[in-house]
């Protein structure tokens, strides 16, 4: 792998992994604590419509995806807040409609769509310098907003109703948060693709959550875990010649499962230790009983 760093595409891939990890570490913490995983998945899939439009109209599919993701975020946020349609129903419908639009657009576009698979499942090895520039710009924006509105987003995630009573513009903040999720998804498209995005938004943050109850530390840890997972995933995919995005996701999911099993075993051991003590006490008690008939 060290030798592979000579190649520009490999260096770009690593930079892309780092930048994707920063965005999904920060935003992923909100996604899992506010429990908006499903709406995030919906935004990601709906952005496929933009990829199709890019092919059809002849502009960058990533720009199309950005436009569609933000529109889907505002649409889903607006519909779930302002109408009586149940939230999961609205998300499910917009999710499928976005994808359907993408399929229709690609069908209408002349020729065939060569790197379509890369948009769906990621191809970190094809990240160009201009992609990196776009990712950097999005990251700067995401970091700036999270820094500026950290306490507001925390309040929104913890107790939205109280936030409203305290005078926060909660609907605006919610739509802004969904907008940031949309931008994060765009950042991640090149790395893992729109289908697999949701794993990178949730796994590093969930891993981080097991180590701290401080939101800032959680974000920091999530970024670190994200970088480690994308780096090792990339290395595995290079060594064994596997699809990069899918390898990163499978590695992340496996690490996640291992930590859950380890945690379960540790807790069981602690429980057994506690009951072990009480068994000894019970033994003492029996001894006294039989000793003094």
């Amino acid at each position: 792998m060290i030798g592979a760093l000579e190649y520009e595409f490999m260096r770009n891939a690593i930079y892309a992994g780092i930048m994707a990890s920063i965005a999904c570490g920060l935003i992923g913490v909100y996604v899992i604590t506010k429990r908006i995983v499903f709406i995030s998945g919906g935004i990601a899939h709906a952005s496929f419509g933009g990829i199709g439009l890019g092919y059809l109209a002849g502009f960058s599919p990533v720009l199309g995806a950005m436009f569609f993701a933000v529109a889907a975020a505002l649409g889903m946020g607006g519909v779930t807040r302002k109408t009586k349609i149940p939230e999961d129903t609205a998300i499910g419908i917009l999710w499928a409609m976005g994808m359907a639009l993408g399929v229709v657009f690609i069908g209408l576009a002349p020729g065939y769509a060569p790197d379509l698979f890369g948009y769906l499942f990621g191809n970190i090895l094809t990240v160009s310098s201009s992609d990196l520039l776009l990712m950097a710009g999005l990251n700067v924006f995401i970091i700036a907003v999270v820094l500026a509105l950290y306490k507001e987003f925390q309040a929104l995630s913890f107790d939205e109703e109280f936030g409203k009573v305290a005078g926060l513009p909660v609907n605006f903040l919610y739509l802004l948060l969904l907008g940031l999720i949309a931008l994060t998804i765009v950042l991640l498209i090149r790395v893992v693709g729109i289908i697999l995005v949701i794993a990178l938004l949730t796994i590093p943050a969930t891993l981080a959550r097991q180590f701290t109850h401080d939101m800032k530390k959680m974000m920091f840890l999530a970024v670190v875990f994200g970088i480690a997972l994308t780096f090792f995933g990339l290395w595995l995919s290079y060594e064994f010649d596997l699809a990069s995005g899918a390898t990163i996701i499978l590695l992340s999911g496996s690490v996640m499962m291992v930590t859950f099993v380890v945690r379960y075993l540790l807790e069981r051991r602690r429980r057994l230790a506690v009951t072990g003590v009480s068994e000894e006490e019970a033994g003492d008690f029996h001894f006294h009983k039989t000793g003094t008939p």
Binding site: V29, T33, R35, A148, L149, K151, E152, Q154, A155, S157, F158, D159, F162, G163, A166, G167, L168, P169, R209, T212, H213, D214, M215, M218
Partner: peptide, 27 residues
């Protein structure tokens, strides 16, 4: 509320001081 939510007692209480006028500003 979510018992696992990453927020301290101090941060919960400060929430009561949030308002539109404090957007973008520190406590």
């Amino acid at each position: 509320f979510d018992r696992e939510f990453p927020i301290s007692v101090w941060e919960v209480v400060l929430m009561g001081r949030l308002s539109t006028s404090r957007l973008f500003r520190r406590y």
